[in-house]
């Protein structure tokens, strides 16, 4: 009896597909192709979204929502822009929507996520502890900013993206990004003074 296992060859063929071919498939409604793309872009989306979420479960939900937004928006994607840029634009704007819609709730929550503290694998690592403390302070300062200012500071100063890239991701003008960043940094410095945290 003849038996031919097609599934053995399928991964080899699919792994040879270029990203643009995966994108075309996903845009045509191929869920498998989208899951493949989502798995490869998830770490980048996770890294950006982690600056806005306050706990790991919240971050997982946010990343999930962003992936669903990408899936819904894929039929409208035009290949004149790089796919990665389009993905990050959708992700950044989704994070902005998240910040705006959760602002009231965030104000009433505690600052430090307990899960983040527990995640400290090596308490003796002074450098990591110093970084985490710096992040907690920066997060405290960011909480004082409105959603737009927070987004600009996160993209420029924490993700080290340029003004032009930040403007492209947010859809705001470069002048607007620069002015917002300048004002936001001033607010952060003022708040640092109020807290007495500067040396």
């Amino acid at each position: 009896m003849f038996f031919f296992d097609t599934t053995r060859f399928k991964p080899t063929v699919e792994s040879e597909l270029s990203e643009s071919e995966w994108v075309v498939r996903a845009a045509g409604g191929d869920e498998e192709a989208f899951v493949h793309l989502a798995a490869s872009y998830r770490p980048r989306i996770w890294a950006t979204a982690s600056r806005f979420a306050r706990s790991r479960p919240e971050l997982e939900d946010l990343v999930q929502d962003l992936l669903v937004k990408l899936w819904r928006g894929l039929p409208g994607y035009r290949s004149d822009a790089p796919f990665e840029h389009w993905v990050m634009t959708v992700a950044v704007r989704g994070c902005y929507d998240f910040l705006r819609s959760n602002r009231r709730r965030r104000e009433s929550e505690c600052l430090v996520d307990p899960a983040d503290r527990r995640d400290d694998r090596d308490p003796a690592d002074e450098r990591e502890r110093s970084r985490r403390e710096a992040w907690e302070t920066v997060r405290l300062l960011l909480e004082q900013l409105d959603a737009k200012d927070r987004l600009v500071i996160t993209l420029l100063d924490l993700e080290e993206r340029g003004v032009r890239e930040t403007a492209a991701l947010t859809g705001w003008s470069e002048a607007n990004v620069k002015v917002r960043a300048h004002r936001a940094r001033k607010k952060m410095r003022d708040h640092l003074h109020e807290l007495g945290l500067e040396p």
Partner: peptide
């Protein structure tokens, strides 16, 4: 200048911290 440098220092340290580590598959 001191204010700016302290904020810059904080941001530089915070930049290297991954708040929730890597995503789990």
């Amino acid at each position: 200048h001191e204010d700016l440098s302290s904020l810059d220092r904080l941001l530089a340290e915070a930049r290297r911290h991954r708040p929730f580590g890597e995503p789990s598959s």
